[in-house]
Design a protein around this nucleic acid. Structure first.
Lengths: 229, 229
DNA sequence: GCAAAAGTGTTAGGTGTACACCCATGA
DNA sequence: TCATGGGTGTACACCTAACACTTTTGC
């Protein structure tokens, strides 16, 4: 490859990934304890350095796979953070992404391996460097996205019940939602398929399982449709 | 500074800035013809390489000042673009920003110096590399931002008339707006100061000048208020 | 006096929100 | 039979969107 820009400065590039899941009616985030210097022992989001041979998206996918065992997850870029002194080790520019995963697919053997824990986003406390900023910006973006696009489904198993879905959105918004209004809107969107099967784990009556219908959703998007919950 | 990450790959980092202005009832963008290899002669957004000593924000501010002569402009990050082959010269990761400027402050002597032209966003045509993608993503983000936050004012002079403001928003949305509804909403927001003076350049009757009141706006934001036009 | 742009209120329809009872089932 | 969570419809308030005429002034 021809090199035209040789005299310019070069930078370390990391991708930091905010891996979000849903359990016990709350959004959880995967947090690690740093196992290496600098800042060994501090709590940190999961990241890695970008390699010459991969795009940013590929780097994030690699990191997510490494720490969760899951592929093909929903991801979105939050932004690039490049203040001069933001990493104390050396100058590093971080590109932050968040990922929404179905926690049922999470490979729990990786908890030990990477010294990682799922924490309720309300209990995260202080993280290393500017990672609290990353998390705050992510949650703001994720809330906006989940209110205008049906991406929240990525946090649920393939089959889920309406009470589950509602409790997810209540966790995202941080406030209770009216059951009838919620179901009315969901139904109106017409992107769910009702299954025969019921989930009886949380009530005697049982709640019907639903499945997200991606084809209908894609058709709506083509028509420029935006939903809001 | 201690160096912990020496074995990792390093990257060229550029900031590409989409400099937007408003004239002749249309949004315009500052476009340059590349004066150097590779891709000499192709039309391009304005950018520069990030230096070790500056943050991303500082790099953009430097680029904007260099190409427009203006400081303290409204800027927002669009995102980082890092596909492996996106720059043909060498691998470069670009962080894209847009800036909203008051074209009355633009230093026109810089047009010659940098071989730059203001183009109506409808007439931009094909740009070099992935710059059309940058522009498309920017316009989408800018539209969303201007509908939820009163940042459109940054495209107007300090004093402006309501017909001007309406024509700005019509350009942003790409559709005509109802005059009475528009004025009603603006008034309801209560963030404009009416001045005594009239602008008589576009009608015999003359339109009153207004000024944006930042204090009132900041107070609204503190209350968690979101406006929409 | 007339052309040309600025300025000004009301109404109907649609959207969001609040609200209470019956149902199915396992223990 | 009863306790528990699942499922269902309506009425009102608010917001959005459509709409036409008067005012000012330079020529």
């Amino acid at each position: 490859m021809v090199r035209f820009y040789q005299q310019e400065d070069k930078f370390l590039l990391s991708v930091d990934c905010i891996i979000l899941g849903f359990k016990e009616n709350a959004i959880h985030v995967l947090i690690a304890k740093r196992k290496f210097e600098p800042l060994k022992g501090e709590r940190s989001l999961l990241g890695g350095f970008v390699r010459k041979t991969e795009s940013l998206n590929e780097a994030v996918a690699r990191v997510v796979l490494e720490y969760t065992g899951i592929e093909n997850v929903y991801m979105e870029q939050v932004g690039a953070y490049g203040d001069v002194g933001r990493d104390i080790g050396e100058r590093v520019v971080s590109v932050v992404y968040y990922a929404l995963i179905d926690m049922e697919l999470y490979d729990e053997t990786l908890e030990e391996k990477h010294n990682a824990r799922w924490m309720n986003i309300k209990d995260v406390g202080t993280l290393t460097l500017d990672h609290n900023q990353f998390l705050a910006d992510t949650l703001q973006l994720m809330r906006r996205r989940t209110t205008t696009r049906p991406v929240g489904f990525n946090l649920l198993p393939e089959k889920f019940t309406l009470p589950q879905l509602q409790s997810l959105y209540e966790a995202i918004y941080g406030r209770p939602l009216d059951k009838r209004n919620f179901r009315y809107k969901i139904q109106e969107m017409d992107i769910l398929e009702k299954l025969e099967e019921k989930d009886k784990s949380s009530s005697r009556k049982g709640a019907y399982y639903y499945r997200f219908n991606k084809e209908k959703y894609d058709r709506l998007l083509e028509d420029g449709y935006y939903f809001s919950l």
